[in-house]
Design a protein around this nucleic acid. Structure first.
Lengths: 216, 216
DNA sequence: GTGGACACGTGAACC
DNA sequence: TGGTTCACGTGTCCA
């Protein structure tokens, strides 16, 4: 009993399968059958099937052994988990950090901060308050942001002020939405506006505020 | 023989483990030992360990059965694969599709296309050719894009043309890089520029081209 | 011929 | 209690 195929002649079916057979002989020889013989057989086949299915889901399989299949599955799961974590991090960085990153970069770049900026805090009442913010982001470079009411000709007025102050636009973004206007821009200082102190920045800010407030 | 522990007295160690033991008795009784008995035992323990390790890597385990462990691992792997695909798609959408998406949206929005736009093809010589493109994206709305040499005052000139043509800026983006300037903007038609035909669009385009080409 | 891997049938433990 | 799962020792294949 036990020990599987002790009473069968050596038969070699292709690639070692179904070593069973001659069950009747065994029964005849010993006239004994375990009650859970078939159930056990089903159980084995089930586990075998599951293992094959697992193998089919793992891209790289070093060995066909059962242990190897499970091992490779483990390493594959760990790789997948790592990848998911990496991708999630990347996605989070891309979709929510722009503002924070901007802040951080700004914090590193800005040498003389003209006005404290908290973009996150400010987002709450971004479209409500009329404001002009200037930051010196280089020897002869400024970054500015303006939020104001949406009025026709307000952008032209902005350009006039820029021209008058001798500020050349490096890049600019203007967005109008819900009756409000947002302008972000980096500008190059063409003529001696910045002579070391920040008084001229204050002046520029006042000019811009005045221009934004005045009706066309 | 075979069939495992046929000759041991029933012993119940906690939670079904180490049913073995009394090996010496077996040896004495039968005076026979399979040469690969211990090796087989190690193999079993190894597989068992791997399965436990696999189980520890799968968050939800419905059953402690071997088959269940493998099954849950399979479903978990499929979930992870799905998640990786989803995240990768999302990431790709975010980081490279903006242009394509823009194109698609434009294709849907644009009713009368004034000039064929192939942003991808154009990216190759984006900063080389001087060009003005206009698209009618609404009853009284235009979308325009200008690439030109970087010259001081060119943006002011652009604004002058906009004002002259009676076009109000809805949103605008200006970028200067490597001696070139890119302007993208949506504008609202204030006065009767567009009277049904697109001749006035052509005229606007010519105005803009002329303004971009002329030296300040 | 040696060791690794497998399927087998079985007794026992757990529900 | 049956039904199910498990570990066991063995025979056999294959590298």
């Amino acid at each position: 009993m036990g020990g599987g195929n002790r009473f069968q002649e050596p038969l070699r079916i292709s690639r070692r399968r179904q070593v069973r057979k001659e069950k009747e002989e065994v029964e005849v020889n010993e006239s004994f059958k375990s009650p859970n013989l078939e159930a056990e057989r089903r159980r084995r086949e089930k586990l075998h099937g599951r293992l094959m299915a697992l193998r089919s889901h793992v891209p790289i399989v070093t060995n066909m052994t059962k242990a190897s299949i499970v091992e490779d599955a483990i390493t594959y799961i760990r790789e997948l988990q790592k990848e998911v974590v990496n991708l999630t991090e990347k996605l989070h960085e891309m979709e929510e950090v722009p503002l924070e990153l901007h802040e951080q970069q700004m914090d590193q770049i800005i040498k003389h901060e003209h006005e404290t900026i908290d973009l996150k805090e400010e987002m709450k009442n971004l479209w409500i308050e009329e404001s002009v913010q200037l930051c010196k982001i280089g020897e002869r470079k400024l970054w500015l942001k303006i939020t104001t009411e949406k009025k026709p000709g307000i952008f032209t007025k902005f350009m006039e002020v820029m021209r008058f102050m001798g500020l050349q636009i490096i890049d600019i973004t203007l967005t109008t939405s819900f009756g409000a206007t947002l302008i972000c821009s980096s500008v190059q200082i063409l003529q001696g506006l910045c002579d070391g102190d920040s008084v001229d920045l204050e002046q520029t800010k006042e000019f811009l505020l005045e221009a934004m407030r005045s009706n066309p």
